[in-house]
Measured scan of single mutants.
Amino acid sequence: HNLTITQGKLFFHYNPKLCLSEIHKMEEVSGTKGRQERNDIALKTNGDQASCENELLKFSYIRTSFDKILLRWEPYWPPDFRDLLGFMLFYKEAPYQNVTEFDGQDACGSNSWTVVDIDPPLRSNDPKSQNHPGWLMRGLKPWTQYAIFVKTLVTFSDERRTYGAKSDIIYVQTDATNPSVPLDPISVSNSSSQIILKWKPPSDPNGNITHYLVFWERQAEDSELFELDYCLKGLKLPSRTWSPPFESEDSQKHNQSEYEDSAGECCSCPKTDSQILKELEESSFRKTFEDYLHNVVFVPRKTSSGTGAEDPRPSRKRRSLGDVGNVTVAVPTVAAFPNTSSTSVPTSPEEHRPFEKVVNKESLVISGLRHFTGYRIELQACNQDTPEERCSVAAYVSARTMPEAKADDIVGPVTHEIFENNVVHLMWQEPKEPNGLIVLYEVSYRRYGDEELHLCVSRKHFALERGCRLRGLSPGNYSVRIRATSLAGNGSWTEPTYFYVTDYLDVPSNIA
Protein backbone atom coordinates (compact mmCIF):
# COMPACT_ATOMS: atom_id res chain seq x y z
CA HIS A 1 0.00 0.00 0.00
CA ASN A 2 1.14 3.52 -0.75
CA LEU A 3 1.27 5.87 2.23
CA THR A 4 1.71 9.61 1.81
CA ILE A 5 1.66 12.14 4.64
CA THR A 6 1.14 15.51 2.98
CA GLN A 7 1.27 17.51 6.19
CA GLY A 8 2.65 16.77 9.63
CA LYS A 9 5.65 14.79 10.72
CA LEU A 10 6.71 11.54 12.47
CA PHE A 11 7.20 11.13 16.19
CA PHE A 12 8.99 7.99 17.56
CA HIS A 13 9.93 7.50 21.20
CA TYR A 14 10.35 4.50 23.55
CA ASN A 15 10.45 1.72 20.97
CA PRO A 16 13.30 -0.45 22.33
CA LYS A 17 12.78 -3.23 19.77
CA LEU A 18 12.39 -0.92 16.74
CA CYS A 19 15.62 -0.24 14.88
CA LEU A 20 16.34 3.26 13.63
CA SER A 21 16.87 1.90 10.14
CA GLU A 22 13.21 0.88 10.02
CA ILE A 23 12.16 4.38 11.16
CA HIS A 24 14.27 5.94 8.43
CA LYS A 25 12.56 3.67 5.89
CA MET A 26 9.25 4.96 7.17
CA GLU A 27 10.43 8.51 6.51
CA GLU A 28 11.25 7.59 2.93
CA VAL A 29 7.98 5.86 2.05
CA SER A 30 5.77 8.44 3.76
CA GLY A 31 7.45 11.46 2.23
CA THR A 32 8.22 13.10 5.57
CA LYS A 33 11.97 13.03 5.36
CA GLY A 34 13.45 16.34 6.45
CA ARG A 35 10.38 17.53 8.36
CA GLN A 36 11.32 15.97 11.70
CA GLU A 37 13.23 17.93 14.23
CA ARG A 38 16.17 16.44 16.16
CA ASN A 39 14.09 15.35 19.16
CA ASP A 40 11.13 13.93 17.21
CA ILE A 41 12.96 10.64 16.66
CA ALA A 42 14.73 9.67 19.89
CA LEU A 43 18.13 8.10 19.33
CA LYS A 44 18.42 6.60 22.82
CA THR A 45 14.96 5.05 23.30
CA ASN A 46 14.43 3.54 19.85
CA GLY A 47 16.18 0.25 19.14
CA ASP A 48 18.21 0.34 22.33
CA GLN A 49 17.22 -3.30 23.11
CA ALA A 50 17.41 -4.61 19.56
CA SER A 51 20.23 -5.96 17.46
CA CYS A 52 20.04 -3.72 14.45
CA GLU A 53 22.24 -5.13 11.72
CA ASN A 54 23.32 -3.62 8.49
CA GLU A 55 25.85 -6.23 7.31
CA LEU A 56 25.40 -9.82 6.15
CA LEU A 57 27.13 -12.68 7.96
CA LYS A 58 28.01 -15.67 5.81
CA PHE A 59 28.63 -19.21 7.02
CA SER A 60 32.06 -20.48 6.04
CA TYR A 61 31.94 -24.09 7.29
CA ILE A 62 29.13 -26.57 7.98
CA ARG A 63 29.63 -30.17 9.06
CA THR A 64 26.96 -32.59 10.27
CA SER A 65 26.63 -35.86 12.14
CA PHE A 66 23.51 -37.68 13.28
CA ASP A 67 23.16 -35.57 16.46
CA LYS A 68 25.51 -32.61 15.95
CA ILE A 69 26.06 -29.68 13.60
CA LEU A 70 29.36 -27.78 13.53
CA LEU A 71 29.07 -24.22 12.25
CA ARG A 72 31.60 -21.50 11.50
CA TRP A 73 30.98 -18.08 10.00
CA GLU A 74 33.04 -15.21 8.71
CA PRO A 75 34.57 -12.95 11.37
CA TYR A 76 32.92 -9.64 12.09
CA TRP A 77 34.30 -6.73 14.11
CA PRO A 78 32.62 -3.31 14.49
CA PRO A 79 34.66 -0.10 14.13
CA ASP A 80 35.31 -0.25 17.84
CA PHE A 81 35.92 -3.97 18.42
CA ARG A 82 35.10 -3.51 22.11
CA ASP A 83 31.44 -3.00 21.16
CA LEU A 84 31.13 -6.66 20.05
CA LEU A 85 29.79 -8.61 23.04
CA GLY A 86 29.31 -11.85 21.13
CA PHE A 87 26.98 -13.69 18.79
CA MET A 88 23.49 -15.09 19.17
CA LEU A 89 22.81 -18.38 17.38
CA PHE A 90 19.15 -19.17 16.68
CA TYR A 91 17.93 -22.61 15.61
CA LYS A 92 14.81 -24.76 15.61
CA GLU A 93 13.34 -27.77 13.83
CA ALA A 94 11.98 -26.86 10.41
CA PRO A 95 10.24 -29.60 8.40
CA TYR A 96 9.66 -27.08 5.61
CA GLN A 97 11.87 -24.29 4.33
CA ASN A 98 9.40 -21.48 5.00
CA VAL A 99 10.64 -20.20 8.36
CA THR A 100 10.96 -16.51 9.23
CA GLU A 101 12.82 -14.87 12.06
CA PHE A 102 9.62 -13.77 13.75
CA ASP A 103 7.72 -17.08 13.76
CA GLY A 104 5.99 -17.74 17.06
CA GLN A 105 6.82 -14.36 18.54
CA ASP A 106 4.43 -12.99 21.14
CA ALA A 107 3.91 -9.66 22.88
CA CYS A 108 6.29 -10.62 25.68
CA GLY A 109 9.20 -11.03 23.30
CA SER A 110 9.47 -14.82 23.45
CA ASN A 111 9.54 -16.90 20.29
CA SER A 112 9.96 -20.46 19.06
CA TRP A 113 13.72 -20.29 18.52
CA THR A 114 16.39 -21.85 20.70
CA VAL A 115 19.04 -19.20 21.39
CA VAL A 116 22.71 -19.78 22.21
CA ASP A 117 24.97 -16.94 23.37
CA ILE A 118 28.49 -17.29 21.96
CA ASP A 119 31.55 -15.34 23.08
CA PRO A 120 33.55 -13.57 20.37
CA PRO A 121 36.84 -15.20 19.35
CA LEU A 122 40.22 -13.79 20.25
CA ARG A 123 40.99 -10.83 18.05
CA SER A 124 44.15 -11.01 15.98
CA ASN A 125 46.32 -8.01 15.24
CA ASP A 126 46.46 -9.07 11.62
CA PRO A 127 43.12 -8.23 9.94
CA LYS A 128 43.72 -10.92 7.29
CA SER A 129 44.07 -13.79 9.77
CA GLN A 130 41.09 -13.35 12.05
CA ASN A 131 39.66 -16.45 13.71
CA HIS A 132 36.30 -17.61 12.43
CA PRO A 133 33.74 -17.82 15.24
CA GLY A 134 31.63 -20.95 15.44
CA TRP A 135 29.58 -23.31 17.55
CA LEU A 136 29.00 -27.05 17.91
CA MET A 137 25.27 -27.76 18.22
CA ARG A 138 24.69 -30.90 20.30
CA GLY A 139 21.78 -33.10 21.27
CA LEU A 140 19.98 -32.80 17.95
CA LYS A 141 17.58 -35.30 16.45
CA PRO A 142 18.86 -37.57 13.68
CA TRP A 143 17.63 -37.03 10.13
CA THR A 144 15.95 -33.75 11.07
CA GLN A 145 16.08 -30.42 9.23
CA TYR A 146 16.94 -27.35 11.28
CA ALA A 147 16.57 -23.67 10.46
CA ILE A 148 19.60 -21.68 11.65
CA PHE A 149 20.74 -18.08 11.63
CA VAL A 150 23.22 -16.03 13.63
CA LYS A 151 23.51 -12.35 14.45
CA THR A 152 25.81 -10.12 16.45
CA LEU A 153 25.28 -8.71 19.91
CA VAL A 154 26.78 -5.22 20.26
CA THR A 155 26.80 -2.55 22.95
CA PHE A 156 24.97 0.74 22.91
CA SER A 157 26.78 3.39 20.86
CA ASP A 158 26.77 6.95 22.08
CA GLU A 159 27.12 8.18 18.54
CA ARG A 160 24.07 6.04 17.64
CA ARG A 161 25.85 4.56 14.71
CA THR A 162 23.75 1.57 13.72
CA TYR A 163 26.01 -1.35 13.03
CA GLY A 164 25.87 -5.10 13.42
CA ALA A 165 25.54 -8.16 11.22
CA LYS A 166 23.10 -11.00 10.69
CA SER A 167 23.07 -14.06 8.47
CA ASP A 168 20.32 -15.35 6.27
CA ILE A 169 18.31 -18.31 7.53
CA ILE A 170 19.91 -21.53 6.34
CA TYR A 171 18.54 -25.08 6.50
CA VAL A 172 20.76 -27.95 7.60
CA GLN A 173 19.72 -31.58 8.00
CA THR A 174 21.41 -33.94 10.43
CA ASP A 175 22.66 -37.30 9.22
CA ALA A 176 20.79 -40.57 9.46
CA THR A 177 21.65 -43.20 12.05
CA ASN A 178 20.40 -46.58 13.17
CA PRO A 179 16.62 -46.66 13.52
CA SER A 180 14.84 -47.77 16.66
CA VAL A 181 13.39 -51.27 16.86
CA PRO A 182 10.29 -52.18 14.84
CA LEU A 183 7.15 -51.95 16.95
CA ASP A 184 4.57 -54.56 17.92
CA PRO A 185 5.82 -57.64 16.04
CA ILE A 186 3.13 -60.33 15.90
CA SER A 187 3.68 -63.87 14.64
CA VAL A 188 1.03 -66.47 13.94
CA SER A 189 0.87 -69.78 12.12
CA ASN A 190 -1.72 -70.47 9.47
CA SER A 191 -0.49 -73.94 8.48
CA SER A 192 1.94 -76.63 9.52
CA SER A 193 4.72 -75.12 7.40
CA GLN A 194 4.14 -71.35 7.50
CA ILE A 195 4.38 -68.47 9.96
CA ILE A 196 2.94 -65.04 9.21
CA LEU A 197 4.86 -62.12 10.69
CA LYS A 198 3.49 -58.58 10.96
CA TRP A 199 4.94 -55.47 12.58
CA LYS A 200 4.78 -51.68 12.68
CA PRO A 201 7.49 -49.24 11.57
CA PRO A 202 9.95 -47.90 14.17
CA SER A 203 8.89 -44.89 16.19
CA ASP A 204 12.22 -43.24 15.31
CA PRO A 205 13.24 -44.24 11.77
CA ASN A 206 16.24 -41.84 11.92
CA GLY A 207 16.32 -41.92 8.14
CA ASN A 208 14.30 -43.40 5.29
CA ILE A 209 13.49 -47.04 6.04
CA THR A 210 14.72 -48.96 3.01
CA HIS A 211 14.08 -52.54 4.10
CA TYR A 212 13.66 -54.97 6.96
CA LEU A 213 15.71 -58.06 7.75
CA VAL A 214 13.90 -61.09 9.14
CA PHE A 215 15.91 -64.00 10.54
CA TRP A 216 14.38 -67.18 11.88
CA GLU A 217 15.89 -70.01 13.84
CA ARG A 218 14.46 -73.35 14.87
CA GLN A 219 14.31 -73.77 18.63
CA ALA A 220 15.14 -76.99 20.45
CA GLU A 221 12.52 -78.41 22.77
CA ASP A 222 13.07 -78.16 26.52
CA SER A 223 15.66 -80.61 27.80
CA GLU A 224 13.30 -81.86 30.51
CA LEU A 225 11.07 -83.35 27.81
CA PHE A 226 13.85 -85.80 27.00
CA GLU A 227 14.68 -86.62 30.62
CA LEU A 228 11.39 -86.97 32.50
CA ASP A 229 9.32 -90.15 32.57
CA TYR A 230 5.78 -89.00 31.90
CA CYS A 231 4.42 -92.44 32.68
CA LEU A 232 4.99 -91.81 36.39
CA LYS A 233 1.80 -91.25 38.33
CA GLY A 234 1.04 -87.61 39.04
CA LEU A 235 3.28 -86.22 36.30
CA LYS A 236 1.24 -84.08 33.96
CA LEU A 237 1.69 -84.61 30.25
CA PRO A 238 3.45 -81.68 28.54
CA SER A 239 1.67 -79.83 25.79
CA ARG A 240 2.52 -77.04 23.41
CA THR A 241 0.15 -74.82 21.48
CA TRP A 242 0.75 -73.24 18.13
CA SER A 243 0.37 -69.53 17.50
CA PRO A 244 -3.31 -68.72 16.83
CA PRO A 245 -4.31 -66.91 13.65
CA PHE A 246 -4.81 -63.16 13.49
CA GLU A 247 -8.07 -61.65 14.59
CA SER A 248 -10.22 -60.10 11.91
CA GLU A 249 -9.22 -56.71 10.65
CA ASP A 250 -12.37 -55.14 12.06
CA SER A 251 -11.55 -56.27 15.57
CA GLN A 252 -8.11 -54.73 15.31
CA LYS A 253 -9.29 -51.22 14.48
CA HIS A 254 -8.18 -48.66 17.01
CA ASN A 255 -10.48 -46.24 18.75
CA GLN A 256 -13.46 -48.58 18.45
CA SER A 257 -16.13 -49.29 21.02
CA GLU A 258 -15.95 -52.65 22.77
CA TYR A 259 -19.70 -53.02 22.69
CA GLU A 260 -21.70 -53.58 19.56
CA ASP A 261 -25.27 -52.64 19.01
CA SER A 262 -27.41 -55.73 18.66
CA ALA A 263 -29.34 -54.02 15.87
CA GLY A 264 -26.25 -53.73 13.67
CA GLU A 265 -23.01 -51.84 13.36
CA CYS A 266 -22.10 -49.20 15.89
CA CYS A 267 -19.96 -46.13 15.56
CA SER A 268 -16.66 -45.86 17.37
CA CYS A 269 -16.45 -43.85 20.55
CA PRO A 270 -13.97 -40.98 20.34
CA LYS A 271 -11.14 -41.01 22.83
CA THR A 272 -11.17 -38.46 25.61
CA ASP A 273 -8.34 -35.99 26.15
CA SER A 274 -7.18 -37.94 29.19
CA GLN A 275 -7.01 -41.18 27.18
CA ILE A 276 -5.02 -39.50 24.41
CA LEU A 277 -2.66 -37.92 26.96
CA LYS A 278 -2.18 -41.27 28.67
CA GLU A 279 -1.34 -42.96 25.36
CA LEU A 280 1.19 -40.24 24.55
CA GLU A 281 2.82 -40.66 27.97
CA GLU A 282 2.98 -44.44 27.51
CA SER A 283 4.49 -44.02 24.05
CA SER A 284 7.09 -41.58 25.38
CA PHE A 285 7.96 -43.91 28.24
CA ARG A 286 8.30 -46.86 25.88
CA LYS A 287 10.67 -44.94 23.61
CA THR A 288 12.77 -43.82 26.58
CA PHE A 289 12.89 -47.34 27.96
CA GLU A 290 13.88 -48.77 24.56
CA ASP A 291 16.69 -46.25 24.27
CA TYR A 292 17.87 -47.22 27.76
CA LEU A 293 17.91 -50.90 26.85
CA HIS A 294 19.79 -50.23 23.63
CA ASN A 295 22.44 -48.17 25.40
CA VAL A 296 22.87 -50.30 28.53
CA VAL A 297 21.88 -53.88 27.83
CA PHE A 298 23.06 -54.43 24.27
CA VAL A 299 26.82 -54.37 23.80
CA PRO A 300 28.01 -53.83 20.21
CA ARG A 301 30.11 -56.59 18.69
CA LYS A 302 33.77 -55.88 18.17
CA THR A 303 34.67 -55.69 14.53
CA SER A 304 37.85 -57.16 13.20
CA SER A 305 40.92 -54.96 13.47
CA GLY A 306 44.00 -54.79 11.34
CA THR A 307 45.69 -57.51 13.42
CA GLY A 308 43.98 -60.30 11.50
CA ALA A 309 41.47 -61.20 14.21
CA GLU A 310 38.27 -62.60 12.75
CA ASP A 311 34.83 -61.22 13.37
CA PRO A 312 33.01 -63.84 15.48
CA ARG A 313 29.69 -63.20 13.75
CA PRO A 314 28.57 -65.83 11.24
CA SER A 315 28.36 -64.53 7.72
CA ARG A 316 24.92 -63.98 6.28
CA LYS A 317 23.90 -66.29 3.49
CA ARG A 318 20.64 -66.01 1.60
CA ARG A 319 18.66 -69.21 1.28
CA SER A 320 15.58 -70.06 -0.64
CA LEU A 321 12.49 -70.58 1.45
CA GLY A 322 12.33 -74.19 0.32
CA ASP A 323 15.48 -75.00 2.27
CA VAL A 324 14.23 -73.64 5.57
CA GLY A 325 12.56 -76.83 6.74
CA ASN A 326 15.87 -78.55 7.47
CA VAL A 327 17.63 -75.71 9.17
CA THR A 328 18.87 -77.61 12.19
CA VAL A 329 21.06 -80.65 12.68
CA ALA A 330 19.15 -83.76 13.74
CA VAL A 331 20.79 -86.03 16.31
CA PRO A 332 19.36 -89.40 17.39
CA THR A 333 18.16 -89.64 20.98
CA VAL A 334 20.10 -92.85 21.63
CA ALA A 335 22.96 -93.62 19.28
CA ALA A 336 22.69 -97.40 19.70
CA PHE A 337 19.20 -97.58 18.22
CA PRO A 338 18.94 -96.07 14.75
CA ASN A 339 15.16 -96.46 14.52
CA THR A 340 14.46 -93.73 17.08
CA SER A 341 13.32 -90.38 15.71
CA SER A 342 15.59 -87.38 15.35
CA THR A 343 13.53 -84.92 17.37
CA SER A 344 16.37 -83.62 19.51
CA VAL A 345 17.41 -80.42 17.80
CA PRO A 346 20.69 -78.95 19.05
CA THR A 347 21.50 -76.12 16.69
CA SER A 348 25.06 -75.72 15.54
CA PRO A 349 26.38 -72.25 16.40
CA GLU A 350 28.33 -72.16 13.13
CA GLU A 351 25.24 -72.71 11.02
CA HIS A 352 24.03 -69.86 8.85
CA ARG A 353 20.59 -68.66 9.79
CA PRO A 354 18.11 -68.24 6.96
CA PHE A 355 16.83 -64.72 6.45
CA GLU A 356 14.66 -62.70 4.14
CA LYS A 357 14.92 -59.08 3.03
CA VAL A 358 11.55 -57.31 3.09
CA VAL A 359 11.06 -54.12 1.06
CA ASN A 360 8.10 -51.71 1.04
CA LYS A 361 5.89 -53.66 3.42
CA GLU A 362 5.56 -54.61 7.09
CA SER A 363 4.69 -58.30 6.80
CA LEU A 364 6.23 -61.57 5.69
CA VAL A 365 5.07 -65.14 5.19
CA ILE A 366 7.85 -67.54 6.20
CA SER A 367 7.37 -70.84 4.38
CA GLY A 368 9.06 -74.21 4.26
CA LEU A 369 9.10 -74.68 8.04
CA ARG A 370 8.87 -77.91 10.01
CA HIS A 371 5.48 -78.77 11.42
CA PHE A 372 4.71 -78.08 15.09
CA THR A 373 8.12 -76.59 15.74
CA GLY A 374 9.00 -73.49 17.71
CA TYR A 375 10.90 -70.73 15.92
CA ARG A 376 12.57 -67.62 17.24
CA ILE A 377 12.19 -64.76 14.79
CA GLU A 378 14.48 -61.74 14.75
CA LEU A 379 13.35 -58.52 13.08
CA GLN A 380 15.52 -55.51 12.22
CA ALA A 381 14.69 -52.22 10.51
CA CYS A 382 17.30 -50.74 8.17
CA ASN A 383 17.54 -47.28 6.62
CA GLN A 384 20.60 -47.91 4.47
CA ASP A 385 21.55 -50.77 2.19
CA THR A 386 24.90 -49.75 0.73
CA PRO A 387 27.82 -49.41 1.21
CA GLU A 388 26.94 -51.26 4.42
CA GLU A 389 23.67 -51.96 6.14
CA ARG A 390 22.60 -49.64 8.93
CA CYS A 391 20.03 -51.50 10.98
CA SER A 392 18.32 -51.32 14.33
CA VAL A 393 18.66 -53.52 17.35
CA ALA A 394 16.61 -56.66 16.80
CA ALA A 395 13.07 -57.19 18.02
CA TYR A 396 12.34 -60.81 18.92
CA VAL A 397 9.16 -62.84 18.71
CA SER A 398 8.47 -66.56 18.93
CA ALA A 399 5.96 -68.72 17.13
CA ARG A 400 5.14 -72.40 16.67
CA THR A 401 3.79 -73.90 13.47
CA MET A 402 0.56 -75.87 13.44
CA PRO A 403 0.62 -79.67 13.86
CA GLU A 404 0.66 -81.95 10.86
CA ALA A 405 -2.20 -84.40 10.55
CA LYS A 406 -1.15 -88.05 10.96
CA ALA A 407 2.44 -87.07 11.76
CA ASP A 408 2.16 -88.89 15.11
CA ASP A 409 0.80 -92.11 13.60
CA ILE A 410 2.98 -95.20 13.91
CA VAL A 411 3.96 -96.34 10.44
CA GLY A 412 4.51 -99.99 9.67
CA PRO A 413 3.42 -103.18 11.40
CA VAL A 414 3.67 -103.91 15.10
CA THR A 415 5.76 -107.07 15.42
CA HIS A 416 6.14 -109.37 18.38
CA GLU A 417 8.45 -112.03 19.71
CA ILE A 418 7.42 -114.56 22.36
CA PHE A 419 9.94 -115.67 24.98
CA GLU A 420 9.83 -118.11 27.83
CA ASN A 421 7.84 -117.41 30.97
CA ASN A 422 5.07 -115.93 28.82
CA VAL A 423 6.99 -112.75 27.97
CA VAL A 424 6.07 -111.01 24.72
CA HIS A 425 8.36 -108.39 23.20
CA LEU A 426 6.38 -105.87 21.12
CA MET A 427 8.31 -103.79 18.57
CA TRP A 428 7.33 -100.87 16.34
CA GLN A 429 8.84 -97.93 14.52
CA GLU A 430 8.68 -94.45 16.05
CA PRO A 431 7.08 -91.79 13.80
CA LYS A 432 9.83 -90.28 11.68
CA GLU A 433 8.60 -86.67 11.78
CA PRO A 434 6.35 -86.31 14.83
CA ASN A 435 4.75 -83.07 15.98
CA GLY A 436 7.49 -81.81 18.24
CA LEU A 437 8.60 -85.05 19.83
CA ILE A 438 7.04 -88.26 21.14
CA VAL A 439 6.82 -88.22 24.94
CA LEU A 440 5.21 -91.64 25.50
CA TYR A 441 3.36 -94.57 23.93
CA GLU A 442 0.09 -96.12 24.99
CA VAL A 443 -0.18 -99.91 24.59
CA SER A 444 -3.70 -101.36 24.80
CA TYR A 445 -3.94 -105.16 24.90
CA ARG A 446 -6.55 -107.72 25.89
CA ARG A 447 -6.99 -111.44 26.01
CA TYR A 448 -10.02 -112.80 24.24
CA GLY A 449 -12.96 -112.59 26.64
CA ASP A 450 -11.17 -110.32 29.17
CA GLU A 451 -11.16 -106.57 29.75
CA GLU A 452 -8.73 -104.33 27.92
CA LEU A 453 -5.52 -103.44 29.77
CA HIS A 454 -3.29 -100.40 29.24
CA LEU A 455 0.45 -99.98 29.53
CA CYS A 456 2.37 -96.68 29.39
CA VAL A 457 5.78 -96.79 27.69
CA SER A 458 8.05 -93.83 28.29
CA ARG A 459 10.37 -92.35 25.71
CA LYS A 460 13.47 -93.69 27.46
CA HIS A 461 11.97 -97.14 27.89
CA PHE A 462 11.10 -97.34 24.21
CA ALA A 463 14.64 -96.33 23.24
CA LEU A 464 16.10 -99.14 25.38
CA GLU A 465 13.69 -101.89 24.33
CA ARG A 466 12.87 -100.80 20.79
CA GLY A 467 9.35 -101.22 22.05
CA CYS A 468 8.15 -102.85 25.28
CA ARG A 469 7.75 -106.25 26.95
CA LEU A 470 4.51 -107.69 28.25
CA ARG A 471 5.17 -110.01 31.18
CA GLY A 472 3.11 -112.52 33.12
CA LEU A 473 0.58 -113.10 30.38
CA SER A 474 -1.94 -115.85 30.80
CA PRO A 475 -2.23 -118.36 27.96
CA GLY A 476 -4.69 -117.38 25.25
CA ASN A 477 -5.34 -115.27 22.18
CA TYR A 478 -4.35 -111.59 22.46
CA SER A 479 -4.88 -108.44 20.45
CA VAL A 480 -2.78 -105.30 20.87
CA ARG A 481 -3.01 -101.69 19.64
CA ILE A 482 -0.49 -98.89 20.09
CA ARG A 483 -0.61 -95.13 19.71
CA ALA A 484 1.95 -92.39 20.22
CA THR A 485 1.49 -89.20 22.22
CA SER A 486 3.42 -86.12 21.11
CA LEU A 487 3.50 -82.51 22.26
CA ALA A 488 0.50 -81.90 20.02
CA GLY A 489 -1.59 -84.72 21.50
CA ASN A 490 -2.42 -88.30 20.65
CA GLY A 491 -1.85 -89.99 17.34
CA SER A 492 -4.07 -92.68 15.84
CA TRP A 493 -4.27 -96.24 17.11
CA THR A 494 -2.55 -98.86 15.02
CA GLU A 495 -4.46 -101.71 13.49
CA PRO A 496 -4.83 -104.61 15.99
CA THR A 497 -2.04 -107.15 16.03
CA TYR A 498 -2.82 -110.69 17.20
CA PHE A 499 -0.66 -113.30 18.90
CA TYR A 500 -1.16 -116.47 20.91
CA VAL A 501 0.50 -117.24 24.23
CA THR A 502 0.83 -120.90 25.16
CA ASP A 503 1.17 -122.37 28.63
CA TYR A 504 4.91 -122.74 29.00
CA LEU A 505 4.35 -125.70 31.42
CA ASP A 506 2.75 -127.68 28.56
CA VAL A 507 5.68 -127.21 26.21
CA PRO A 508 6.88 -130.72 25.10
CA SER A 509 10.33 -131.70 26.30
CA ASN A 510 13.10 -133.01 24.07
CA ILE A 511 14.43 -135.26 26.83
CA ALA A 512 13.74 -138.97 26.17
Rank of each mutant, 00 (worst) to 15 (best):
204 D>P: 02
208 N>K: 15
209 I>Y: 07
211 H>I: 13
212 Y>L: 01
212 Y>R: 00
213 L>V: 02
216 W>T: 12
225 L>C: 05
228 L>R: 06
229 D>G: 09
229 D>F: 11
230 Y>F: 07
230 Y>K: 03
231 C>S: 01
234 G>M: 12
234 G>K: 08
235 L>A: 04
236 K>M: 08
237 L>P: 09
237 L>W: 11
240 R>E: 02
241 T>G: 14
242 W>M: 04
244 P>L: 07
244 P>D: 11
246 F>R: 11
247 E>P: 09
248 S>Q: 04
250 D>F: 09
251 S>P: 14
251 S>Y: 07
252 Q>H: 08
254 H>L: 12
255 N>Q: 09
256 Q>E: 07
256 Q>W: 07
259 Y>W: 11
260 E>L: 12
260 E>T: 11
262 S>N: 06
262 S>A: 14
264 G>I: 04
264 G>N: 07
265 E>Y: 11
265 E>A: 13
266 C>N: 08
266 C>T: 11
270 P>A: 07
270 P>Y: 08
271 K>V: 03
272 T>W: 09
273 D>V: 06
275 Q>H: 03
275 Q>R: 03
276 I>M: 04
276 I>Y: 08
279 E>R: 02
279 E>F: 02
281 E>K: 05
281 E>C: 02
285 F>A: 04
285 F>S: 03
286 R>E: 01
286 R>T: 03
288 T>H: 03
288 T>S: 04
289 F>M: 02
291 D>V: 03
292 Y>E: 02
293 L>S: 03
293 L>R: 02
295 N>D: 08
299 V>R: 13
299 V>T: 04
300 P>I: 12
301 R>I: 04
301 R>M: 01
302 K>W: 10
303 T>H: 07
305 S>D: 12
305 S>R: 09
306 G>Y: 06
307 T>A: 08
307 T>M: 07
308 G>D: 09
308 G>H: 11
309 A>R: 12
311 D>F: 08
312 P>T: 14
312 P>A: 05
313 R>H: 00
313 R>E: 15
315 S>R: 11
317 K>P: 09
320 S>D: 11
320 S>F: 12
321 L>Q: 14
321 L>N: 05
321 L>S: 09
322 G>W: 12
323 D>A: 09
325 G>R: 05
325 G>M: 10
327 V>P: 09
327 V>T: 13
331 V>W: 04
332 P>G: 06
334 V>H: 09
334 V>E: 07
335 A>Y: 04
336 A>I: 10
338 P>W: 14
338 P>T: 10
338 P>E: 07
338 P>Y: 09
339 N>Q: 11
340 T>L: 10
341 S>P: 07
343 T>M: 09
343 T>G: 10
344 S>P: 11
346 P>L: 06
347 T>K: 09
348 S>P: 13
349 P>D: 12
351 E>M: 07
354 P>R: 09
356 E>L: 06
356 E>R: 09
356 E>M: 15
357 K>P: 08
359 V>S: 12
359 V>A: 13
359 V>F: 09
360 N>F: 06
360 N>K: 15
361 K>E: 09
362 E>N: 11
362 E>R: 14
362 E>I: 15
363 S>P: 11
366 I>W: 03
367 S>C: 10
369 L>W: 02
371 H>D: 15
374 G>E: 15
374 G>R: 10
376 R>W: 05
376 R>L: 15
376 R>S: 03
380 Q>V: 06
381 A>S: 13
382 C>P: 15
384 Q>H: 15
385 D>I: 07
385 D>N: 10
386 T>I: 10
388 E>N: 06
389 E>N: 11
391 C>M: 10
392 S>M: 00
392 S>E: 00
392 S>N: 00
394 A>W: 12
395 A>Y: 14
395 A>I: 11
397 V>Y: 14
397 V>S: 04
398 S>G: 04
399 A>Y: 03
399 A>H: 02
399 A>C: 04
400 R>M: 06
402 M>Q: 08
402 M>R: 15
403 P>Y: 03
405 A>E: 14
406 K>D: 10
408 D>Y: 01
409 D>A: 07
410 I>R: 05
412 G>F: 09
414 V>D: 01
415 T>V: 14
415 T>L: 12
416 H>L: 09
417 E>A: 15
418 I>P: 12
421 N>T: 10
421 N>P: 13
423 V>K: 10
424 V>E: 10
424 V>R: 03
425 H>D: 08
425 H>N: 07
425 H>A: 06
425 H>G: 06
426 L>D: 01
427 M>C: 14
427 M>S: 08
429 Q>E: 14
431 P>N: 09
432 K>W: 06
432 K>F: 07
432 K>N: 13
433 E>C: 15
434 P>R: 05
438 I>G: 01
439 V>F: 04
440 L>W: 15
441 Y>R: 01
443 V>Q: 00
447 R>P: 10
448 Y>I: 13
449 G>N: 09
452 E>D: 15
452 E>M: 15
453 L>S: 06
454 H>R: 06
456 C>M: 01
457 V>P: 00
460 K>D: 09
461 H>D: 04
463 A>K: 07
465 E>A: 09
467 G>A: 08
467 G>N: 05
469 R>P: 04
469 R>N: 04
470 L>I: 15
472 G>N: 13
473 L>K: 01
473 L>N: 10
474 S>T: 09
477 N>V: 03
477 N>Q: 11
477 N>G: 11
483 R>D: 00
484 A>R: 00
485 T>V: 11
489 G>I: 01
490 N>T: 15
490 N>L: 15
490 N>S: 06
490 N>Y: 07
491 G>A: 09
492 S>K: 02
495 E>C: 13
496 P>S: 06
497 T>F: 03
497 T>Q: 07
498 Y>F: 11
500 Y>H: 10
500 Y>G: 12
500 Y>A: 11
504 Y>L: 09
510 N>R: 07
